[in-house]
Design a protein around this nucleic acid. Structure first.
Length: 253
DNA sequence: ATGGCTTTATGCTAAAGA
């Protein structure tokens, strides 16, 4: 089973990119983040053999799950705050696997309430993932975590030191989630530096490979044992009118 | 990056992203 995740920074602007990528890679599941609008081209994906579960929001955020198999929706919001209406969390069951797509808050600037929202959102995520571990549910959670886990995951740790994506508080939340028993799929085999999933549009970040690794897959222990590979496809970042993120793909047997 | 792109919107400038 091949599961991919891609922050596409507007589905409206990137529909052709996504369609071409689906045709080329034929994943069983594709998690999308930053739809950035209420409209979603479900019919176009249906024509390629994919069903859709969509959690849209006007202008910002928005996540969707595409799958060749039936999708059972479990949660359309991250539990723990009934007042949180941002479209960032979609928990489904697909082919016997709990598949969760997320778009975690950015959190900048750190002096603002956006950073406290990010930290409390990650607290709620940890609570949810803890429950799923206690129930021994096989979990694949993927998406834009907006977390740079380690220094090796960014081009210049000094530049990122005080950023919401790399602040110690943020990385502590990441560690706490891993300590529940989840594994960073990409780092099981690949320990290389300069392995990124995002490059800023500005200042020639892409041609200079000044990127950060913030799009991740976490696997519960049983699913970790079933993992075959986890790779980042950097090709789409070099296309015309590219998203600033590129797809991550995990293969599970 | 003290913001050099890109996108969305009770739109023609502001807000958000990371």
């Amino acid at each position: 089973m091949r599961i991919a995740s891609w922050n596409i920074n507007s589905i409206k602007m990137r529909l052709e990119h996504v369609r071409n990528w689906l045709r080329q890679h034929q994943p069983d599941v594709l998690l999308l983040q930053e739809l950035k609008g209420l409209e979603f081209p479900a019919a176009e994906f249906r024509a390629l053999g994919y069903q859709s579960a969509v959690l849209p929001q006007k202008a910002y955020n928005g996540v969707a799950t595409l799958a060749r198999h039936d999708i059972k929706i479990e949660y359309e919001r991250l539990p723990g705050d009934p007042l949180d209406e941002q479209a960032r969390y979609l928990e489904t069951t697909i082919n016997g696997l709990r598949v969760i797509g997320i778009y975690a808050p950015n959190g900048n600037p750190v002096e603002s309430d956006k950073f406290s929202y990010k930290l409390s959102w990650l607290d709620r995520l940890q609570e949810r993932l803890k429950l799923l571990r206690e129930d021994e549910i096989p979990v694949v959670i993927g998406g834009d975590f907006n977390i740079i886990p380690e220094s090796v995951d960014c081009y210049d740790p000094v530049v990122w030191k005080e950023d919401a994506l790399f602040r110690l508080e943020t990385r502590k939340k990441w560690r706490s989630i891993l300590n529940l028993g989840y594994t960073d799929a990409f780092r099981i085999y690949n320990k290389q530096a300069q392995q990124y999933s995002f490059w800023d549009y500005q200042a020639g970040a892409w041609p200079q490979n000044r990127g950060i690794r913030i799009d991740h897959f976490l696997l519960s222990p049983d699913v970790t044992d079933r993992m075959v590979s986890c790779t980042i496809d950097t090709i789409p970042r070099g296309l015309e009118k590219a998203s600033d993120h590129t797809p991550v793909i995990v293969e599970i047997k």
